[in-house]
């Protein structure tokens, strides 16, 4: 079976905001991006999926199993999450990455085994942060911290990697560095990725599928070519845009049009 995640009629949220019966599925090896304006329900969807918020309706099946019935340890062995902000901690990078092995610790196992350290170092090498292993995490740049967070997630050896706006605090060079890495992991390890991302052009460049959210609903789903169309984007974001093609990647690209320049737009 190729299907990894199936979300059916997922509903729930906060007092003043509710997600409305969202349905979608992810196949193994997908690199999917959740896009949409602020307050459209992207993070709420992730929280409902992970059980951080309790859904009022709907099911989340992971590899055929109901995610809400999985133990928190089993869940952490299957799905790893990387947040937008990395905690400010005095831990060294190696100590931080080793936390990813917590889901595999036995009850009376206080210290990590050689195997855990070997795995942490293997993934640190893969992500290019092995040279920082003894450096305090807080002394790294924002981009390097994100790489460390992805590495920590990798040491959980998950099947699905969830990223919540991993690049929103980074400059373009670090955005590319982090997403190149995720893309490499997606290809080489066949790691399924679901990422919330604000930047439509990054989403279009890296994801093979996009889920566009609008007012708590899944508005449009498909390939970047199917979703990144100016009519759809303008309707959802309520702003005028022009779409074109990235000359190198041939992926659709969104260009913003300032209101003061609207007079020169001819359609």
């Amino acid at each position: 079976m190729n299907e990894l995640l199936r979300i059916t009629d997922l509903k729930g949220g906060y007092k003043n905001f509710h997600l409305k019966e969202v349905n979608f599925q992810l196949n193994k090896g997908d690199f999917a991006g959740i896009i949409g304006p602020n307050g459209s329900g992207k993070s709420t969807l992730l929280k409902l999926m992970m059980g951080d918020l309790k859904p009022t309706k709907g099911t989340v099946l992971f590899d055929g199993n109901d995610l809400s019935r999985m133990t928190s340890l089993k869940k952490a062995q299957s799905i790893a999450v990387v947040n937008q902000r990395i905690a400010d901690t005095s831990m060294t990078v190696l100590e931080y990455v080793l936390l990813g092995r917590i889901p595999y610790r036995q009850l009376f196992q206080f210290f990590e085994q050689k195997e855990d350290i070997a795995k942490a170092e293997k993934y640190m090498e893969m992500t290019g942060i092995l040279k920082y292993r003894n450096v305090p995490l807080s002394s790294l740049s924002g981009g390097e911290q994100q790489l460390a967070a992805v590495t920590r997630a990798l040491t959980q050896e998950p099947q699905l990697l969830l990223l919540d706006e991993p690049t929103s605090m980074l400059d373009i060079s670090h955005q590319v560095q982090v997403l190149d890495l995720v893309s490499k992991l997606n290809c080489e390890l066949r790691l399924t990725v679901l990422m919330i991302i604000h930047d439509l052009n990054l989403a279009s460049s890296y994801c093979n599928r996009l889920l566009l959210m609008k007012k708590g609903k899944l508005h449009k789903e498909g390939t970047p070519q199917e979703v990144i169309q100016y009519q759809i984007i303008e309707d959802v974001y309520k702003t005028v845009v022009v779409t074109g093609e990235n000359p190198v990647t041939k992926k659709p690209t969104v260009f913003l049009v300032p209101h003061s320049q609207l007079y020169s737009l001819k359609r």
Binding site: M50, T71, A76, A80, N83, A87, M91, I102, Q156
Partner: peptide
């Protein structure tokens, strides 16, 4: 407690109840 050094959400995602 070590996982909670990263915050409650992160700890929960590391399998901590």
């Amino acid at each position: 407690l070590n996982a909670l050094r990263l915050g409650e959400d992160e700890a929960a995602h590391l399998g901590i109840n």
